[in-house]
């Protein structure tokens, strides 16, 4: 059983068994266009909420991916290195970026749920 949360900088957070899986949203990848490169954090690196954790690049743009929570990375999605298109094709599935521990579960309540995020996207686009 997992629950999905969304940040204002267009990362999603899926929480299951005390581990958060982070990636960029379907909307974010559609805005970037064809993704050509993803720079992932090394494992066991600590992040505070809002730190730059990863970079995602299309041909003409580069964007930072921010840690939506405080914690330590436990795993990075190595398959994105060889096949960055996964982040376009299945952003909220096989195209995830990294997993991290949840050091402060209270931070989750500052994120949006799916419905609120959809409204947020509509308002800002």
């Amino acid at each position: 059983m997992s629950t999905t949360y969304y940040s204002r900088s267009h990362e999603y957070v899926k929480v299951a068994d005390g581990i958060a899986t982070i990636g960029i949203t379907t909307y974010a990848q559609s805005q970037l266009g064809d993704i050509v490169f993803v720079e992932l954090p090394e494992t066991r690196r600590g992040f505070k909420r809002g730190d730059e954790a990863a970079v995602v690049e299309s041909v003409k743009a580069a964007s930072e991916v921010y840690a939506p929570l405080t914690g330590e990375t436990t795993e990075a999605n190595e398959s994105l290195i060889d096949n960055p298109a996964l982040a376009n094709e299945d952003p909220e599935g096989d195209g995830w970026f990294f997993k991290m521990s949840l050091d402060n579960e209270g931070e989750l309540k500052d994120l949006m749920d799916a419905e609120t995020y959809q409204t947020f996207v509509k308002e800002t686009s």
């Binding site: 490169f37 690049e57 299309s58 041909v59 003409k60 743009a61 580069a62």
Partner: peptide
């Protein structure tokens, strides 16, 4: 690999 360069990445 232009995303390394100033015209896209600016201060980064």
């Amino acid at each position: 690999l232009s995303t390394r360069e100033q015209h896209i990445r600016r201060e980064k």
